[in-house]
Amino acid sequence: MSWFKRTLNSSIGGKLIVAVTGLGLVGFIIAHLSGNLLIFVGREALAEYAEGLRKFPAILWALRIGLVGMAVAHIGFTIKLNLANKAARPVGYAKKTYRRATLASRTMVLSGLTLLAYIVYHLLHFTWRTTDAEIAALGPYEVYDMLIIGFSSPAISAFYIIATVLLGMHLSHGISSVFQTLGINNPKYNKLFRCLGPALGTVLALGFITIPVAVMTGFVTR
């Protein structure tokens, strides 16, 4: 297994882990959004979806463990790579001009860490239901009411929207990066790869934002 350890410890191997786990997390984000958008179908559809998820506990737990594992590996390896990057330039420039780096690419650690903070809050809020007595009093499948109660608070909706915008930015750089990191590269598709990140990032962020906006504007009500 020496080759395996060597690969994981290398720069390119570390990036491979970040890319693969990032891609897995993107898969989760897409599935999560698809489920959430059922709020626009109605109360029953959302309850049925929530119930359906719990029908196969073994699968649910396998997915949960997989998700946590991917998140831990993603964050762990990005921290390791970032520390190495900082160490690689002990003295900075008095003047530095960027030519090509996008805002999203320069704020990956900021967007990632904000997301992490948001995810912890989000789990406390909607999964463990420890932050709001009204939500805690709901039945396990009353997800529709939970979302409406949760997003009636402008402060919570604002935090959610900010985190979602940062998710969009993280993915706009992240998704396009995956192709480069994995070496999936062909002049025939490179334009597509470079556009896919910003496109998917925008669509996913807008998708998530529709939910608090719909609640706040009274488009969906109890």
Binding site: A88, Y98, A101, S105, H173
Partner: peptide, 22 residues
Amino acid sequence: MVNQMDKEGFGNCTNQYECEAA
């Protein structure tokens, strides 16, 4: 070559392509 590159203490690419521009 990658092994030596890592050993020399160069950092890890974050796909910003500033290198290509410079």
